[in-house]
Write a protein that binds this DNA or RNA. Sequence first.
DNA 1: TAAGTGATTAGGCAATAGCTTAAATACGAT
DNA 2: ATCGTATTTAAGCTATTGCCTAATCACTTA
Lengths: 107, 107
Amino acid sequence: MQRIFEALASAVRRKILAYLSNAEMTAGEIAARFEISKPAVSQHLTILENAGLVASEKRGQYVHYRLIEDNLANTLNGYLQEVCPVARPIKAESARKRLERDHNSDA
Amino acid sequence: MQRIFEALASAVRRKILAYLSNAEMTAGEIAARFEISKPAVSQHLTILENAGLVASEKRGQYVHYRLIEDNLANTLNGYLQEVCPVARPIKAESARKRLERDHNSDA
DNA sequence: TAAGTGATTAGGCAATAGCTTAAATACGAT
DNA sequence: ATCGTATTTAAGCTATTGCCTAATCACTTA
């Protein structure tokens, strides 16, 4: 409980959740999206993971992060983010990324 | 949004919300309930008020604080607190306080 | 108006959060 | 094996948070 609220208290971390809302991302992709260093993003991801909001999976060289959909806090937060002017465009980007990937997987 | 999440990130502040869940309280009553100084509680109340989670009303010498019931964040938080082992006993105290007052108002 | 009580503000201190750069670790490809 | 890339860990710095005590402000009552 405490870890969830603390994780959600950070604007950057909520943006990361929005960015993961529609597509899985590697740590590097997430870091590239935001204006902070990779180590800083890595720390945020650790906090989100310890709060049970995201899960990571190492595949080769990359670490893929995804939302844990089956999670009350994420469900409620996702609902709030639908009406949040900061989160909405980031969620849209996330959706676009997924579409791009679906498209490219034809190649 | 940011202020709401920040307000809810503190365990003491969530306890204060639980304590207000069933009854209005003065600043002094809230401070007496928790093991921190009155000024510290006053700061927490300011943060909760700035987040739009509580409202204050000065009546004579006392400042009464109450939850803003008609508030999405409070509604969701109240729901979470129903299943929170920390918040539940505090909510019960709050309910007891209200009953005491209803009883004493006969005098 | 003076004293007593409730509450907040001010000032100061210790602990923590969040960031950066540099170093280390893990993996893939040449 | 070595080099390049992806990621995390380590170390250190700054800003903020949260608390305390002391002082101030506001109100009530004798």
